[in-house]
Design a binder for these strands. Structure first.
Length: 654
RNA sequence: CGCGGGGUAGAGCAGUCUGGAAGCUCAUCGGGCUCAUAACCCGAAGGUCACAGGUUCAAAUCCUGUCCCCGCUACCA
C-alpha cells in the first residue's frame, strides 16, 4: 500500500480521578476508528492517548482515600488503561503526566517561556476559599462558591506566574481565520472568536502555590505548573519534543498533529491556549481540533431500573466489544449530543448487527455449504442484477473515504451497512435456494454465491476500523484474507475456489429487550419507590461527598426563614431573580439563579430558607446580601426549601 | 438588542452551503419468500419540513420578522 505520510492523532488525556464512564470511553473509541481508518488508507499513523495526573483534586482525593497521590493515580491509570484496552483501541502511546520525561520537559518549557519573557511573575487576583486554601477564577466557581467545598469565597491575591496571552491573540485570530477547518465543528469556532478572542484575552495564570501535587517550577519551588500547561504539552512531549531543540525523530516526522480529538467542553483550551503556547515555543500549530459532542445517558420510560453512570465494561459484558463500539460510533450525531438508552442499544444490536450483518454472513455461508460443498467459485454466469449489486458495493469505499474526510464517522459506518443491506436484497433477487434445486443452474448459483462472498469480503474489510474483531471473524469464516484498501473498489477481493467454514458461528445473537432490561434491573437495583414519579431516580448516582465538619463549622452559618416580599427579574441576565426577603429584623436583597424555575410573581409570598450572614457580592451588577437555599437534582431542576409548618420570618433554622 | 446552534412522519435523525417531485433507521399495517438469527425482500399508511410574510416558473433549502428549545459567555452568594 502506498505510504501517504505521517498522521498524528490524539485524544485528550483523561483525568485520573476514577473509572471512566461510557461518555469518556466514547472519545477513545472514536479516535481509534479514525486511527485505524487512516492506517488502512496507508498513513503512517501515530495515535496517542493518556492520563492527566496532577492537580489539587487528585491531591485531595488521595488524601480522602488515605493514599499518596502517586498511589492514587496509579490506580486510576490502571483502571483507565484497562477500559481502553478492553475496547480494543489501538493507541501507539499512552502518556502519563507523571512520566519523568514529561515532567522534565514541562519544567524546561516553563523555564524557556519565562526566559524569553512570555511568562512573568505577577499577582493573581481571584476568589479565595480560606478553608481550602485555594484560588478560583470566576468561571471555576460552582454556584458562585468554591467548587470543592461549596463554601463562599473572598476576593484576594497571591503571587503567581502569568502567560502573556494577549501578545499572541492577533496572530491566533489570523490563523483561525486562515484555516477554517482548524476548529471543528464550525459552530465552536464562532464561540471561541466571539466569546474569548474578540473581547480580548486575559493573561493566563500558569502556576499555583496552593497545592503541591504538580510539577514544580524549577527556579521558584513553591510554585507548581498550572495543570493546563502541564496537560496540553503532552501532545508534544509524548512524541519526543525537547525544549532545548533536541527533538526525537518521531517528533520531527509527526508534528504538527493532524487531529486533536477532544470533548466540546475543552475546545477553548485547545484552540486558544494551546496554539498560543505553541506559537510562543515557535512550533507549528495542529492542523485540526475536533470538539466532539457528548454521549449522554438518557432516561426514558424505564427510569426506575436505570442509573446515570454506565461503564463500558458493563455493556461489553452484555453485548460484546464491537457492539459497544458500533453504538458509540454510529449513534452519535456529528455535532449534537447523543444519548445512550438500553432500548436503542438493543434495537441497533438486533436490527443492524444481528439481522442485517450477522444473518447475511450466516445465510451466505450456509448456502455455500448446502449447495456447493463450501467451495465458492466464480463460474462466470453473469446477469444484470450482478452489476447493480456491484454498483453499490464498489462505490462504498469512495463513500466511506468521503465521509471520513470530514470526520463524519457515523455516516461512514452507514455507508458500509448499506452495502450489507444491498447484499441481502441480492439474495432475494437471485433466489439461490431455487437455483440450488435445478442441476443446470449450478453454475449460475455458484457465481451468485461467489458475488456474495466477494461483496461481503469488501464490506467486512471496510468495516475493520470500526469493528475490528467482527471484520476479522467474517473474513475468517469466508476463508478470506485481509484485502489491501486499494482493492476494495474492485471485483475479485474474494479468491475464487476458496472454501468457506463448515459451521458458521453466529456473530451476534439476537437479544430480547425484556431480557436485557431484566439484567439491567439486576445490575442497577431500583430504589424503593418513595416519590410518586420516580423519574429522576438517583439510586446509582455516585454522590460526591464533602469533608466532615464539626458542629462549630455549622454554627458559623446563620440560617433563617425568610418571606419574599417582592421579586423581579434582573434585567441584564437570563437566569437571575432579585428578591426582597424579610428575615425578621431586616429585609435583604438577594439575587438567585433560579429564573428558569420560578417566575417573579410566584416567588412573592414564599417562605424560604436563607443564609443571612453571607458576605454580600455583586451579581450582574446587582448586590446580593444572602442566599436562598434550594435542592437541586441531577437534571438541574431546582426546588426552594420551605418550612413544612408555618414559621414566621426570622425563625432560626438549626 | 452578548455570541452561536437547532425546531423535518409516533420515536431518533439526514437533507439546507450549490433552490427543482420530502428521505433514512426503528415502530405500525399488508404482501412475498423459506437459504438464514421469529430472519430476509417488496409495498402501504403516516409530515401544512416551528409560525408569518417575501424573492422565484419553482423554497425544507434564499431573504425578513415572530415564537419555542439547546450550548457558550457574562452573573446562577
Amino acid at each position: 500500500m502506498a505510504d501517504k505520510g505521517p498522521y498524528y492523532i490524539t485524544t485528550a488525556i483523561a483525568y485520573a480521578s476514577g473509572k471512566p464512564h461510557i461518555g469518556n470511553t466514547y472519545e477513545i473509541v472514536l479516535a481509534d476508528a479514525i486511527a485505524r481508518f487512516k492506517r488502512q488508507q496507508g498513513y503512517e499513523v501515530f495515535f496517542q492517548t493518556g492520563t492527566e495526573e496532577h492537580g489539587i483534586k487528585i491531591e485531595e482525593k488521595a488524601k480522602t482515600a488515605g493514599v499518596t497521590p502517586k498511589q492514587f493515580v496509579d490506580g486510576a491509570y490502571n483502571e483507565i488503561k484497562r477500559i481502553w484496552d478492553l475496547m480494543n483501541t489501538s493507541y501507539d502511546k499512552f502518556i502519563r503526566t507523571t512520566d519523568t520525561y514529561h515532567e522534565k520537559q514541562v519544567q524546561k518549557i516553563f523555564k524557556k517561556l519565562f526566559d524569553q519573557g512570555d511568562i512573568y511573575k505577577g499577582s493573581y487576583e481571584g476568589m479565595y476559599c480560606t478553608p481550602c486554601e485555594s484560588f478560583w477564577t470566576a468561571s471555576q466557581l460552582v454556584d458562585g462558591k468554591c467548587p470543592d467545598c461549596g463554601r463562599p469565597v473572598q476576593p484576594a491575591s497571591e503571587e503567581a506566574y502569568f502567560f502573556k496571552m494577549s501578545k499572541y491573540a492577533p496572530k491566533l485570530i489570523q490563523y483561525i481565520e486562515d484555516h477554517p477547518e482548524f476548529i471543528q465543528p464550525p459552530a465552536r469556532k464562532h464561540e471561541m472568536i466571539n466569546n474569548f478572542l474578540k473581547p480580548g484575552l486575559q493573561d493566563l495564570c500558569v502556576s499555583r502555590t496552593s497545592f503541591t501535587w504538580g510539577i514544580p517550577v524549577t527556579f521558584d519551588e513553591k510554585h507548581v505548573v498550572y495543570v493546563w500547561l502541564d496537560a496540553l504539552v503532552n501532545y508534544i512531549t509524548g512524541i519526543g519534543y525537547d525544549a532545548g531543540g533536541e527533538h526525537e525523530e518521531l517528533y520531527k516526522s509527526h508534528w504538527p498533529a493532524d487531529l486533536h480529538l477532544i470533548g466540546k467542553d475543552i475546545v477553548r483550551f485547545h484552540t486558544i491556549y494551546w496554539p498560543i503556547f505553541l506559537m510562543a515555543l515557535g512550533e507549528p500549530l495542529p492542523k485540526q481540533v475536533f470538539g466532539h459532542p457528548w454521549l449522554l445517558v438518557g432516561d426514558g420510560k424505564m427510569s426506575k431500573s436505570k442509573g446515570n453512570t454506565i461503564y463500558a465494561d458493563t455493556l461489553v459484558d452484555m453485548f460484546g466489544i464491537d457492539a459497544v463500539r458500533y453504538y458509540m460510533i454510529h449513534e452519535m450525531p456529528f455535532d449534537n449530543d447523543g444519548v445512550f438508552t438500553w432500548d436503542t442499544m438493543v434495537e441497533r444490536y438486533n436490527s443492524e448487527l444481528a439481522n442485517t450483518l450477522g444473518n447475511l454472513v450466516k445465510r451466505t455461508i450456509s448456502m455455500g455449504n448446502q449447495y456447493l460443498g463450501g467451495v465458492i467459485e466464480d463460474r462466470g454466469v453473469k446477469d444484470d442484477m450482478d452489476d447493480d449489486l456491484y454498483a453499490t458495493v464498489l462505490s462504498a469505499k469512495a463513500g466511506v473515504e468521503e465521509k471520513m474526510a470530514t470526520l463524519h464517522v457515523a455516516d461512514a459506518v452507514t455507508v458500509i451497512f448499506d452495502l450489507f443491506k444491498r447484499c441481502n436484497k441480492y439474495i432475494d433477487e437471485t433466489t439461490p435456494w431455487i437455483l440450488g434445486k435445478e442441476e443446470d443452474k449450478k453454475d449460475r448459483l455458484s457465481t451468485v454465491l461467489y458475488n456474495l462472498c466477494d461483496c461481503i469480503t469488501i464490506g467486512a474489510s471496510l468495516l475493520f476500523p470500526y469493528m475490528p474483531d467482527t471484520s476479522k471473524a467474517i473474513l475468517e469464516q469466508l476463508g478470506s484474507k485481509e484485502i489491501s484498501f486499494d482493492l476494495l473498489d474492485k471485483r475479485g477481493a474474494f479468491v475464487s475456489g476458496t472454501k468457506v467454514t463448515e459451521d458458521p458461528v453466529t456473530l451476534f445473537d439476537r437479544r430480547k429487550l425484556e431480557d436485557v432490561l431484566k439484567e439491567v434491573e439486576k445490575l442497577y437495583p431500583a430504589k424503593p419507590a418513595d416519590a410518586g414519579e420516580g423519574d429522576n431516580d438517583a439510586a446509582l448516582t455516585e454522590l460526591e461527598h464533602k469533608a466532615q465538619i464539626g458542629i462549630d463549622d455549622f454554627d458559623k452559618l446563620e440560617l433563617r426563614v425568610g418571606v419574599i416580599k417582592a421579586c423581579e427579574a434582573v434585567e441584564k441576565s437570563k437566569k437571575l431573580l432579585c428578591s426582597k426577603v424579610d428575615v425578621g429584623d431586616k429585609t435583604l436583597q438577594i439575587v438567585s439563579g433560579i429564573r428558569k424555575h420560578y417566575s417573579p410573581e410566584e416567588m412573592v409570598g414564599k417562605r424560604v430558607m436563607v443564609i443571612v450572614n453571607l458576605a454580600p457580592a455583586k451579581l450582574a451588577g446587582v448586590e446580593s446580601q444572602g442566599m436562598l437555599l434550594c435542592a437541586e437534582n441531577e437534571k438541574g431542576d431546582l426546588a426552594l426549601m420551605t418550612p413544612e409548618k408555618d414559621m414566621p420570618a426570622g425563625a432560626l433554622i438549626c
